[in-house]
């Protein structure tokens, strides 16, 4: 697991996302309204929906497939149901976004 430089912070739309792929791994980088950037595995634990396409609300994202709500900070499902996705460490240096994969 090492940090990769992936993009500028402005490359991620506010309350939107970017996908980062490394081999078979796919992470979704989210930029929240407060400016922070968080990254989780880009597959909903419910049926594998692309969380990157979900609506961001507070610290959560709502899966576009069946409305599962996932906490971006720790990857846990807030409901309905239970479960979790992986989270990835993110750091921001100047304008650059780095992710640990």
């Amino acid at each position: 697991m090492i940090f990769y430089r992936v993009c500028k912070i402005t490359d991620i739309p506010v309350m939107g996302s970017r996908i980062v792929n490394l081999g078979p791994e796919s992470a979704a980088l989210f930029r929240l309204y407060d400016g922070s950037v968080l990254a989780i595995e880009n597959a909903c634990p419910h049926k594998g929906g692309p969380l990157s396409e979900g609506i961001v609300s507070g610290n959560s994202v709502i899966c576009p497939m069946h409305n599962t709500r996932v906490d971006l900070r720790d990857g846990t499902v807030e409901g309905p149901d239970t479960g979790s996705v992986r989270t990835y460490e993110v750091k921001i240096e100047g304008e650059e976004v780095w992710i640990r994969l």
Binding site: Y4, V6, C7, D11, P13, G16, R18, I19, V20, N21, L22, S26, L101
Partner: peptide
């Protein structure tokens, strides 16, 4: 921004 492609590393 809504159509951005994945970043491949």
């Amino acid at each position: 921004e809504v159509f951005s492609a994945p970043i491949e590393i």
